[in-house]
Structure formats: structure tokens, C-alpha cells
């Protein structure tokens, strides 16, 4: 038990040191959502009318609407990037080092996920701070309650990346992941437009968006930021986390041979 926690601390610390060591990384991670917030949302404000839907109690500007979705975007990109980088040659050695540690493999993978999630959360909070300076503020309880929501969402998206990294060998470059995972997940969700808007566009689209785990992760973050409970979003996100995690553990089972192609 103590050994497991020592390992967890070491893995999180390594991830944090690496992150802080690469000064450009935080900037790069923040530029993407900020462009969406400051440019895309500003342009779209006039085009998109939003009605009052929970958790909002008044009319809100479009910029306010997409902040939780952009937090989700940070977690999504990070989750994919940190998990998929494991399959690149550059990181292959450090993955081997991790997996040959004298601890159960599932725990090592959980540690790795948690470490990646911590870095994602730091970036999400940095983004929320900039959004607050820009004038989009949440109730103070929201900033506290967002922590567990962001953590669960980050774990879920990281687990998805981990599962993908063990199965899909062709997705070895990030462009493929962008096209086939990140973009569909992001656009077919409630990150940019509420689900009822999607329903106007078509039933099939609406159903896809409603089933997308990323939608539930975004809603979980959105409701947490306004200190409003959303149990269905929590339940679906946790369920997706469990499913992706199970898939990832199966994918990294040594009897299946994840190192096979590098043999």
C-alpha cells in the first residue's frame, strides 16, 4: 500500500517536473482554448441566440456558454496527447521502465492517468483564471466544485486515450487522432452549442451528441462551475471512465502483448 502511494507520488512529480521544464507547453496548451474564446466566440455571439437553460439563471453571452466546453477541450487534448505519446518510440523506453516496476500493472496505469489528469487540471484552472480576467466569472463555490468534476472528466478522457493507444496501432501520429477522435468528440458534443440546438439540426445528430461521453463530461464541468448538481452527467462520465479503463487494462495485459509490434 505504502509502496503504491510512493510510486504514485513519484509519477505525478515526474509529470509535473516535465511540464514545468517545458515552458512553452503551458502557453501552447492555453492558446488553443483562448483563440476559441476570444475570436470564435466573439464572432459567433451575434449569430447564436441562447435561451435560458440550466444551470444558467439568466441570459448569458455565448462566451460564457463555451467556457466549460473549452475546459473539456483542454482535458481532451491532454488526455489524448499524454496517453498516445506512450506509443511513440521516444516514449517507449519510459513506458517499459514504468511497466517493469514491481507493482501491479493496473495500479501503474492508474498512476499514469492520475498524473496526466493533474497536469490537465492545472491547465484548465489557468484557463479559467484568464477567462475570469476577461470578465467571465463563476460563483466561488463553482471553482471549488469544478475540481472533482475536472478530475473525473480528465481521468475518463485519459483512459480513452490509453485504451486507444493499446489498440489502434495506425493512430501513431497526432493528426490522425485529431481527425478521427478529437474533432468528432468535440464537435458532436454540447461544448459549442446546447443539445436542444442540435435537436433543431436533426434527430440523428442530437442522438449522437447525447450519447457522446464528452457531452456528459462537459455538462458535469458546466454544472459544477455553477454549483448545481447534475447526477446523470456524473453517472455517465463515471460509467464511461470505468468502461474505458477496463478496455485500457485489457489492452495493456502482457498476455496480449502490447509491445508485440516492437518485439
Amino acid at each position: 500500500m505504502r509502496r503504491g502511494l510512493t510510486a504514485l507520488r513519484a509519477i505525478v512529480l515526474r509529470e509535473a517536473l516535465r511540464f514545468l521544464g517545458q515552458r512553452g507547453r503551458l502557453v501552447a496548451a492555453l492558446v488553443r482554448p483562448l483563440v476559441w474564446l476570444l475570436v470564435f466566440a466573439a464572432g459567433f455571439r451575434a449569430a447564436l441566440g441562447l435561451s435560458i437553460i440550466p444551470p444558467y439563471q439568466t441570459y448569458i453571452a455565448y462566451e460564457t456558454y463555451i467556457v466549460p466546453g473549452l475546459c473539456g477541450m483542454i482535458l481532451l487534448f491532454n488526455g489524448m496527447q499524454s496517453s498516445l505519446s506512450l506509443t511513440y518510440d521516444r516514449e517507449m523506453g519510459s513506458m517499459k521502465l514504468l511497466l517493469t516496476s514491481p507493482l501491479p500493472r493496473w495500479w501503474l496505469l492508474v498512476c499514469k492517468l492520475m498524473a496526466g489528469s493533474v497536469i490537465s487540471i492545472l491547465q484548465a484552472y489557468a484557463f479559467l483564471a484568464i477567462a475570469a480576467l476577461y470578465g467571465i466569472q463563476m460563483p466561488w463555490q463553482g471553482y471549488l466544485l469544478a475540481l472533482p468534476a475536472l478530475f473525473i472528466a480528465a481521468l475518463m478522457l485519459g483512459a480513452l486515450g490509453l485504451a486507444l493507444s493499446s489498440f489502434i496501432k495506425q493512430l501513431e501520429n497526432f493528426a490522425g487522432v485529431m481527425n478521427f477522435v478529437i474533432f468528432p468528440m468535440f464537435f458532436l458534443s454540447s461544448a459549442l452549442y446546447p443539445l436542444w440546438k442540435m435537436a433543431e439540426a436533426g434527430r440523428v445528430l442530437h442522438s449522437i451528441c447525447a450519447a457522446n461521453p464528452f457531452t456528459h463530461a462537459v455538462e458535469l464541468i458546466r454544472f459544477a462551475l455553477y454549483a448545481t448538481p447534475n447526477l446523470p452527467a456524473l453517472g455517465w462520465t463515471l460509467l464511461a471512465l470505468a468502461a474505458f479503463m477496463a478496455l485500457a487494462l485489457w489492452g495493456y495485459d502482457p498476455a496480449r502483448g502490447m509491445m508485440r509490434r516492437k518485439g
Binding site: 505504502r2 510512493t6 510510486a7 513519484a10 521544464g21 517545458q22 523506453g93 521502465l97 514504468l98
Partner: peptide, 25 residues
């Protein structure tokens, strides 16, 4: 391992501390 496994941006000591943690030390 045949592949390099050091984190190049970390110091030698930080690399070794990370590994020690993995071993439960």
C-alpha cells in the same frame, strides 16, 4: 533497456528519484 529511458529535461538525480519512487523507495 535498449531504448534510452532517461527524461532528458530532468537532472540525473531527479531521474533516479523517480525510479526510486517506482520501486517504493
Amino acid at each position: 533497456f535498449q531504448q534510452p529511458t532517461l527524461d532528458l529535461d530532468l537532472t540525473v538525480r531527479q531521474n533516479l528519484r523517480y525510479f526510486a519512487g517506482l520501486q517504493g523507495l
